[in-house]
């Protein structure tokens, strides 16, 4: 393990916050429950918007459907917060975990995908009325977004099985 990651781990493990997260038996499952609620809000808003771009529920104007997304962003904020608490609680399960790094990479890619959406087709999509098909570029962005979110959920769930399987596994 990288020396700086190791010292980060040792430092975090000594904090009061870490002791709280791993202390009372109910804390971890409560945090997980919140993490799953946040995940559901993300899929229910961004995921459905992606599906509309791909042609589902065309009767919904994307410009109005997108107004549900702040609820998904609230879910994302909840997940960043609870995610940080998981990391602080059990840093040893994350610092040397290939699934965790995949998950973080997918989150970054999802962010870049949103940025590309805003820089390219967002205005065109915003102007679409009921029944209008999204342009091809928007469909591609929607499909990539859906795949990334499924990837984020999968990597998140799988990281339990890779607590001590670092990036070295890739080249072994």
């Amino acid at each position: 393990m990288d020396a700086s990651l190791h010292s980060l781990r040792v430092w975090l493990e000594g904090t009061t916050l870490s002791a709280w997260v791993t202390g009372p038996i109910y804390v971890w499952p409560v945090l997980e429950t919140l993490h799953f609620l946040g995940l559901s809000l993300l899929i229910g808003t961004i995921g459905l918007f992606d599906l509309r771009l791909l042609g589902m529920a065309k009767g919904l104007p994307p410009g109005l459907l997108s107004r549900l997304i702040p609820w998904g962003m609230a879910g994302f904020a909840l997940n960043v917060l609870t995610g940080i608490l998981f990391f602080v609680g059990e840093p040893k399960n994350y610092v040397n975990n290939i699934a965790f790094y995949f998950k973080m990479a997918f989150v970054v890619l999802a962010g870049i995908n949103v940025l590309i959406f805003y820089l390219t087709v967002a205005r065109k999509v915003e102007a679409l009325g009921p029944g209008d098909a999204a342009p091809l570029g928007a469909k591609v962005i929607g499909a990539v977004s859906l795949l990334l979110w499924v990837g984020i959920m999968s990597a998140g769930r799988l990281l339990t099985f890779y607590h001590d399987h670092g990036l070295g596994r890739l080249i072994e």
């Binding site: 799953f36 229910g44 808003t45 999968s154 998140g156 769930r157």
Partner: peptide, 20 residues
């Protein structure tokens, strides 16, 4: 691991869509 992952992804779509 895959079964558990499917259970999580399915939950996201079921609960997320219903919540929206």
């Amino acid at each position: 691991p895959t079964v558990l992952t499917l259970h999580t992804v399915g939950m996201g779509f079921l609960v997320g869509t219903n919540a929206a």
